[in-house]
Amino acid sequence: MADVDLSEPEKVYILHSVQENLREDGRGCEDFRHMEVETGLISNTNGSARVRLASTDVLVGIKVQLTPVDPKKPNVGRIEFFLDCSANATPAFEGRGGEGLASEITAMLTRSYSCFSAIDYTSLCLLPGQQCWLLYIDILLLECGGNLFDAVSIAVKAALFNLRIPNVTMTKDEGGIELDVSDDPFDFKRLDVSGAPVIVTVNKIGHQHVVDASEKEEACSLAKVMLGITEKGTVTAMKKEGSGSLDSESISEMIESAKNVGIELNKCLLNILKEEEAKIEEPVGFLR
């Protein structure tokens, strides 16, 4: 994150404008910034997506791999999140500099996807008790412009929507069951993402709260609540962060607005993804 140094008057300006429900960039408190979503850019992956939320830039690639099931959960597939903070975003991420932030974000993602209805985990299991799919969801953070958690979760959902899992044929051998993964690129199945959550971060600024805070607004906020919200409005995960404290009444207000925004966000995202898929043009990606 490029360090934002705000002077006292600047902070006061942002604080006052938020109280008036007219933020410094002209948005209301529950408005998102301009967002671009694109899927299928990386042909080496089974599913990929790029999300650009104002100047926050996230690229997600998913690779699938056959793996033995977790003995504690023999009937379900597995997913694994990995986030890399690219030094392209800021020199502070060079070497191992981004690892703290990375583990924070992956922990939140893992928590919101650990809910059983998030994706159809049983469909990822091929042979109960033996083999299942492992989804490696690899996230690359390319530029930080505020509201990283939300952008990352949107990109993950878009990539899951784009995911094409090759079909597997099973043949019974004398030694056991043999799995044969199809190498035909058009022989695949999709994953139902209607239950997948997006993370909505609500920042408390003064007496008001805002969603999709810019870096400047994040610098003015003392506490934020992050929630994983599904299309139906179910909360799958929740976390409070920041140095400030919140009273329970304001938390329930924040949850309420996060829910409203989250439901709308999920709907819009799904519409955009379906629209994009109907197009035939090849993705432009970073050449735009």
């Binding site: 080496n44 690639g61 690219s86 030094a87 060079e94 490696y136 690899d138």
Partner: peptide
């Protein structure tokens, strides 16, 4: 001059 070369984990054929 300080350089850093890194490859996205999904960039190659095998992860």
């Amino acid at each position: 001059i300080n350089c850093q070369y890194s490859m996205a984990t999904f960039s190659t054929q095998d992860r």
